[in-house]
């Protein structure tokens, strides 16, 4: 993975996420760990779900918060590195950004360096009782087409 050039995306389907009231909540369905991103971090996550590149994310975040790209770059880079290390992000399989059914999170000034909060209480609870059966992953990854009625 080359964070400088690759288009990135949320590591779905193992990671499910939703932004509510300006906070992105991420759930690792394999481990039970869950995460929170607020402020600029929630915007970064929204852009990752849209399969943006790092440079596009930096540019977007800077514009949204009225800061220069150089001001936000280090913080975004560090956050992306953390997200990759946690297995929450991977290289995109799409050539272009995508649209998603999720509103862009509101911007609350001033800009603060984004940080990932991790919660492991569920992870510990589920350590002896793994939540997701790998045997069903193929089936669950893609519903049969034309089946919704």
């Amino acid at each position: 993975m080359n964070l400088a050039t690759d288009r990135l995306q949320a590591n779905e389907p193992d990671i499910a996420s939703r932004i509510m009231d300006g906070e992105a909540i991420l759930i690792n369905l394999q481990s039970g760990a869950y995460y929170s991103l607020r402020g600029a971090g929630a915007l970064v996550w929204h852009l990752l779900r849209r399969h943006q590149t790092r440079d596009a994310i930096v540019h977007d975040v800077a514009g949204a918060f009225g800061e220069s790209a150089s001001t936000v770059q280090a913080g975004v880079n560090e956050l992306l590195g953390t997200l990759v290390a946690e297995g929450l992000v991977r290289v995109s399989d799409r050539p272009e950004p995508v649209t998603i059914d999720e509103e862009r999170p509101p911007v609350a000034l001033p800009y603060q360096t984004p940080a990932l909060e991790k919660f492991t209480d569920m992870e510990e609870l589920l350590a002896l009782d793994p939540p997701t059966p790998g045997a069903l992953d193929g089936l669950m990854r893609q519903p049969l087409t034309g089946r919704r009625d």
Partner: peptide, 15 residues
Amino acid sequence: MLSLPTARQHSLDAL
């Protein structure tokens, strides 16, 4: 999400 093996992103959107 952690108790139903059929749960994925679409489930979270509905919730």
